[in-house]
C-alpha cells in the first residue's frame, strides 16, 4: 500500500531523512516514533507529497509520489491526513468542513456529502456540534472532527502526524479511542505518535527513527520486548517511566 524506498531529503546541506525504507501493507497499522527532530513528521508528510524529497521513491497504491507527472491532488484525496494542530478551517461550520473537499474534489452533490459527513460526525460522537465552528470546540473535539473530515473522503489509508501532542491530557483518550476503533476495523494507518499505549494496543509494527534514519523497524512485540538498538532502548525507558 505505502512503500518507501531509500528516501532521502535535505534542507540545504542538512540531511533530515537518510535512506528511509519501510512499507505499510494493506490493513496494517504502523506506529512511527522517535525523539523530536528525528524526521518522523517529515517522513510522514513525504508520503502524500506535502514534503518533497530529493532521493528515493515512495509508492502509494503503486503510484509514485515523487514523479512530477503524478496528479498529487488526486492521490492526496485518497490518503487521509490528520495533523498535530487539527487544521480545521476556522471560518467554516463543522458541516462545511466535512463537505468542502467531498464537493470540490470528489464532485459529490451537497446532499450526498452532507449525509456522508454527518454520518461520520455521528461516528466520532459529535453530531450535535454540526452547526458550530471549530473555534467553539475543544481540542479533542476538533481533532475528532478532523478525523471525520479525512474519513469522509473514503481514504485507502490514513496518516496521523502526532494527533494527540497538542491536546490537554484529558482529551487524548477520546481521540485515541476513535483511532483504535479505526485500526480494529482494518484501516491502513501510519501513525507518528509518542502514545506507546496506542502502539501496544493496535500497532502491527513499530518504526523507530533517530537523526533522520530508521533505526528499528520490527513487529510490535519485538519492539517492546527487546528493541535491538541502544538508542531505542534509551528512548523507551525514558518515555515509559513517566
Amino acid at each position: 500500500m505505502i512503500d518507501l524506498r531509500a528516501v532521502s531529503k535535505w534542507f540545504g546541506t542538512f540531511q533530515v531523512l537518510k535512506d528511509c525504507t519501510t512499507r505499510v501493507a494493506k490493513g496494517e497499522v504502523v506506529v512511527v516514533c522517535g525523539p523530536s527532530g528525528s524526521g518522523k513528521s517529515t517522513l510522514i508528510k513525504a508520503v502524500n507529497g506535502l514534503e518533497p524529497f530529493q532521493k528515493g521513491e515512495i509508492f502509494v497504491n503503486g503510484i509514485s509520489v515523487g514523479d512530477p507527472r503524478t496528479n498529487l491532488p488526486k492521490l492526496r484525496a485518497h490518503i487521509g491526513m490528520v495533523f498535530q494542530n487539527f487544521e480545521l478551517f476556522p471560518h467554516m461550520s463543522i458541516t462545511a468542513n466535512l463537505t468542502l473537499a467531498q464537493v470540490k474534489v470528489l464532485g459529490r452533490s451537497r446532499e450526498e456529502a452532507e449525509a456522508k459527513g454527518l454520518k461520520l460526525l455521528d461516528r466520532v460522537g459529535l453530531l450535535s456540534q454540526k452547526d458550530k465552528f471549530p473555534g467553539q470546540l475543544s481540542g479533542g473535539q476538533q481533532q475528532r472532527v478532523a478525523i471525520a473530515r479525512a474519513l469522509s473522503m473514503d481514504p485507502i489509508a490514513m496518516l496521523f502526524d502526532e494527533p494527540t501532542s497538542a491536546l490537554d491530557p484529558e482529551m487524548i483518550n477520546e481521540v485515541l479511542d476513535v483511532m483504535v476503533e479505526l485500526a480494529r476495523e482494518g484501516m491502513t494507518m501510519m501513525v507518528v505518535t509518542h502514545e506507546m499505549g496506542f502502539a501496544r494496543k493496535v500497532a502491527h509494527r513499530v518504526v523507530f527513527m533517530d537523526h533522520g534514519q530508521i533505526v528499528e523497524d520490527c513487529p510490535k512485540d519485538d519492539f517492546f520486548g527487546s528493541p535491538r538498538s541502544e538508542r531505542a532502548q534509551a528512548f523507551l525507558s525514558k518515555i515509559l517511566h513517566h
Binding site: 490518503i79 495533523f83 478551517f89 474534489v105
Partner: peptide, 25 residues
C-alpha cells in the same frame, strides 16, 4: 502554514486552497 497543508492533504489544488481556505481567513 498547516492550513495550506491541510487543504492540499485533503485533495484541493493550490488555487482551491487559496480560494476556499487561505483567502477567506
Amino acid at each position: 502554514r498547516g492550513q495550506t497543508s491541510a487543504g492540499l492533504a485533503i485533495g484541493l489544488t493550490l488555487p482551491q486552497v487559496y480560494r476556499h481556505v487561505t483567502l477567506p481567513m
